[in-house]
């Protein structure tokens, strides 16, 4: 009985998908082994969103890792002579003063370049931590179910009820010195439940798949079932959510810094600059403008990357 629940179009898809073994001789080698990840990669490379976002992210990472490659000016020491000078000089792109100076005569461009690191570190570290903790919690809740799941689910529900930024503000308030790592901790503390929810849902879906039953029937242990069968199949939605969330964490850091609860001078960060820029918006708009643009581009790049990955991993297209 073919396609009990499939539509005709899906049936057509099915008929397209398999290699035709009715013609074995002409092309035995033509079709190589293609894993689903491999297929997704082929798909990604064709996606213009992916190309644009990955180029942007590549430069962001490069700037964060080697800011001195892009500017030799100091982000913290300025010359008051340059106080509030600010017109972009397109002829001198990349030079110290081409985006102007702030109130203390520091190069806006240099601060932009050096501020990237804070944003990127916060984004990547928070994402890594929430993915690992949230992923493990989600796997435990989804796979073992029962009372563990009930408790974990209620905990995530509670966190879900706390507004993200408000919660982060409360956490940060309790620290006197707010370094990058404190901000990372605050965001990760509030962020892991999102990944837990996604992972739990994915694990519950995959757990019921026949191939998991088949592995159990073979006598496979819990570790093998979890890491060989469930995790690789439950990871796709987590990757997508985490990528999109990464942009969100970067903007959260900026928001907190703007509110004066995140990073503060002398740490160089876009959020700090936006915060000072706002106070001088009538006299020197460029101090606010450029970090805002950088922030928007960065967040956009990660969201675009997440969307592209989602499209590539979407099983409905295969």
């Amino acid at each position: 009985m073919p396609d009990v629940t499939k539509t005709a179009a899906e049936a057509v898809e099915d008929a397209i998908a398999p290699p035709s073994a009715a013609e074995p001789a002409p092309q035995p080698k033509a079709e190589k082994a293609r894993s689903l990840w491999g297929d997704a990669w082929v798909d990604l490379r064709r996606n213009p969103y992916f190309l644009v976002s990955s180029v942007l992210i590549f430069f962001l990472l490069l700037i964060a890792a080697f800011p001195s490659l892009f500017t030799s000016a100091s982000p913290t020491v300025g010359d008051l002579v340059n106080h509030y000078l600010g017109k972009p000089e397109l002829g001198k792109i990349g030079s110290e003063g081409w985006l102007g100076y702030d109130g203390q005569g520091r190069s806006v461009y240099a601060r932009l370049i050096h501020g990237t690191r804070a944003s990127v570190i916060v984004g990547i570290c928070v994402t890594l931590i929430v993915t690992i903790i949230g992923g493990i919690m989600g796997m435990i809740a989804g796979y073992f179910g029962g009372i563990i799941d009930a408790v974990l689910s209620r905990v995530t529900d509670i966190f879900f009820g706390i507004p993200f930024l408000l919660g982060a503000m409360v956490v940060l308030q309790s620290f006197t010195e707010r370094t990058i790592w404190v901000v990372v901790f605050a965001l990760a503390f509030l962020g892991w439940t999102q990944i837990t929810r996604v992972m739990r849902g994915a694990v519950i879906t995959v757990k019921q798949a026949d191939y998991v039953q088949a592995a159990k029937a073979l006598g496979a242990g819990t570790g093998r079932i979890l890491f060989r069968h469930i995790l690789p199949n439950a990871m796709a939605p987590v990757i997508v959510v985490a990528t999109i969330a990464l942009g969100g964490y970067i903007s959260a850091e900026a928001t907190l810094s703007y509110l004066g609860l995140g990073l503060s001078s002398p740490i160089v960060s876009w959020g700090v600059d936006i915060s000072t820029g706002v106070t001088q918006i009538r006299t020197a708009q460029h101090i606010l403008l450029y970090p805002s643009i950088m922030l928007s581009i960065t967040v956009l790049a990660f969201i675009m990357l997440g969307e592209a990955v989602r499209n590539a991993l979407d099983p409905k297209l295969r």
């Binding site: 008929a15 398999p18 035709s20 073994a21 009715a22 013609e23």
Partner: peptide, 17 residues
Amino acid sequence: GLPPNLLRVPTGCAFNP
């Protein structure tokens, strides 16, 4: 054999293989 792949329907009569 198997039903044909619609992207590569055999030439001539599709059932020939």
